[in-house]
Every structure is written in C-alpha cells, then in structure tokens.
C-alpha cells in the first residue's frame, strides 16, 4: 500500500527525481522530500493559495495535487524566480512597495503574479486582482501587492527581465 514511487520531473529548470507515496501531496514532496520550503502550507483546501506553484506554466495549489501526478511535469516554485542573488522584478517591486508583512502568502502570490505576467504582460488593475483572487493575504489589504504587480509589469516592459524563463 505505502510503496514508494519514483517521480521524474523538472523543478526550476533542473531534472529532479524523487521518491514518494501516492498519498503525499506535491506540497509535501516539495517541502519534506526536496526541502524546497518556499511554498507554504496554509489551508490545505485550495482556498488560500499559499502553496501555489506553476505546473507546465499554470498556477495550481500544490496541496491539491499528488506528488505522483508531477511525473513528467515542468514545475516552478518561488525558489526558481530569482537567479542567485538577482531578484525577479516582481520580488524587487514587492520589496520597494512593502507588499508584505508576515510574508506567508508572499511566495504563492509571487507565483500567481508570475503566471499572470507570463500570459498578460500588461494587465489592468482589475486583471491583477482577478488573477490573485485565489491568494489570500490577511496583513496588507492587497493594495500594495496590486501596485507592486502593476509596477513590475511596467518595469518588465521597459527592460527589467526575469533572469530565467519563469
């Protein structure tokens, strides 16, 4: 029953293999097996978005996906946004706009915002708010987050670049 399965996947651009039981969520695999603890455990019901990661470019709640389902998938976590010490423009703008307080929602919000800007480099405020509807923040009241995402979009249009294809 609890036989472990080998899962072959790509995480943040690198081929990664890991062993997991079917009952382990992708979030558990990332945090407990691979020690990628940037993705946070919040509600475990798909409401808060703190565990958001990109799977083949789409934001998903990693708490609602099994680790074994990651077989053959291309996964990007918040750890894959910066290149060494060079921050992704979204990360830079979150700092400049003070878009976080406790920070537990921040990795998930950065991931959702990355998914948005990859598809829509010039979003309206409403589009940003819609794209982030699945990410709850209890500290900021969202305004600073939305401003940072809009500002990052502007910066990226005028040349600031994510260092890898996030």
């Amino acid at each position: 029953m609890s036989k472990k399965t080998l899962v072959e996947t790509t995480i943040n651009g690198e081929a990664v293999e890991f062993l997991c039981e079917p009952r382990q969520s992708l979030l558990e695999c990332l945090r407990d097996v691979l020690e990628l603890t940037g993705s946070k455990e919040g509600c475990l019901t798909g409401d808060c978005g703190a565990c958001s990661v990109l799977v083949d470019g789409r934001a998903v709640c990693s708490c609602l996906m099994l680790g074994v389902e990651a077989q053959g998938k291309n996964i990007r976590t918040v750890e894959g946004l910066a290149d060494g010490t060079a921050l992704h423009p979204l990360q830079q703008k979150f700092l400049e706009h003070a878009s976080l307080q406790c920070g537990i929602c921040t990795p998930g919000i950065l991931v959702s915002a990355t998914a948005l800007l990859n598809r829509n480099p010039d979003p309206t405020e409403q589009e940003v708010r819609y794209a982030l509807a699945g990410n709850l923040c209890r500290c900021t009241g969202y305004d600073k987050i939305v401003r940072a995402v809009l500002d990052a979009a502007k910066a990226m249009k005028s040349g600031a670049r994510p260092n890898r294809a996030a």
């Binding site: 798909g46 978005g49 934001a59 959702s112």
Partner: peptide, 8 residues
C-alpha cells in the same frame, strides 16, 4: 474557485 482551481 480561483484560477488555481480552474487550472486543475
């Protein structure tokens, strides 16, 4: 749900 939900 959210986009995260609609994506799955």
């Amino acid at each position: 749900g959210s986009l995260q939900i609609q994506n799955r």
